[in-house]
């Protein structure tokens, strides 16, 4: 089926892309194994879409090496495109085209397409079959765009913010779909700024910021890199005096009131620490509510790496 099955689905090294004076991607490298799901995670403007569009062959890199299914997307687009499915950010369809018409058109470009009617059904678009694209809701447009990416039975899918604008049910469905694609051997490169999405879907997460890779690994590796970075959270009356608690906790643990009434203990959380906290609460005559021990979430890792200030 494919002349270069040994090559990874996507292999990027030293990728640089500039827009005038702005460096959008700055020496980025990553690798998507065949049949695996990689999430490119980053804040707005981190360079996610630029990276994906270089891999899709829409943008030419200023420097670096890009191989997609063993081919150079900048020069081998005609051979590459039939093997790849693309869901561009913000979709893409004729404003007046009916949902089914659009999908049939894209299906006609493939040798062995999935049945467009079945695909519309499973994506919940059966009732919108004859609705013009411009009258579809944002989530429906996204689902149609996903259908267009899938219909040609590609070896590799690029999904740029696939669940943007979708309601929770539709997001759930897309997650299931990505799971099924992975099971059937399709490699997926998706971008997202949703931590739960990356955590739920990806075999490998690459966090990028300012066009560089700032961290990568499996979701588990990223969130448990540091055993001393666990957390215990609980809610209680705001403004409690924590002097006694600080004295009672082991030295490696810090405690502070993260928001009024929301207390956070950070450090290596063992049963002794939990017991100390509940004992202190009893002493203060308060009930610790929503007490939970958690490793750092991917969101914590992400915010620590990319900063907490708001991006445009």
């Amino acid at each position: 089926m494919s002349p270069n099955l040994d090559s990874p689905a996507v292999e990027v090294s030293g990728l640089v892309k500039r827009y005038g004076d702005t460096v959008a991607v700055d020496g980025l490298g990553m690798r998507v194994a065949r049949g695996s799901v990689l999430a490119l995670l980053g804040p707005n403007g981190a360079g996610k879409t630029t990276t994906v569009e270089v891999c899709e062959g829409f943008l030419r890199p200023d420097a670096g090496r890009v191989r997609v299914l063993g081919l150079d997307p900048a020069t081998d687009g005609a051979r590459l495109r039939p093997r790849v499915g693309v869901m561009p950010q913000g979709g893409g369809a004729y404003p007046g085209v009916r949902a089914a018409e659009m999908l049939r058109l894209v299906a006609a470009c493939a040798a062995n397409p999935l049945d467009p009617d079945w695909l519309l059904d499973v994506l919940g678009l059966a009732a919108a079959r004859r609705t013009p694209y411009k009258r579809l809701s944002g989530g429906q447009q996204q689902r149609l765009s996903l259908a267009c990416a899938l219909v040609g039975r590609p070896e590799l899918l690029f999904l740029d913010e696939p669940t943007a604008g979708m309601d929770p049910q539709a997001r759930r469905l897309v997650w299931e779909l990505v799971g099924a694609l992975r099971r059937d051997g399709v490699a997926v490169l998706l971008t997202t700024h949703l931590m739960d999405e990356a955590e739920a879907l990806a075999d490998h997460v690459v966090i990028i910021d300012h066009g560089r890779v700032v961290a990568e690994g499996t979701p588990h590796e990223l969130t448990s890199a540091d055993a001393d970075e666990q957390q215990l959270r609980f809610r209680a009356t705001p403004g409690l005096d924590m002097t006694l608690l600080r004295a009672a906790l082991p030295e490696h643990c810090q405690v502070h009131e993260a928001a009024p009434g929301a207390y956070l203990v950070q450090g290596r959380i063992d049963p002794q620490v939990v017991s100390t906290v509940t004992a202190w609460c009893a002493q203060q005559g308060v009930l610790a509510q929503e007490l939970q021990v958690a490793r750092r979430s991917l969101e914590d890792v992400f915010l620590d790496l990319t900063g907490r200030e708001l991006r445009s």
């Binding site: 089926m1 470009c109 040798a111 062995n112 397409p113 040609g152 099924a180 059937d184 051997g185």
Partner: peptide
């Protein structure tokens, strides 16, 4: 269901 079977129409 999604086993790859790519190709140009």
């Amino acid at each position: 269901t999604f086993r790859p079977a790519p190709g140009r129409g």
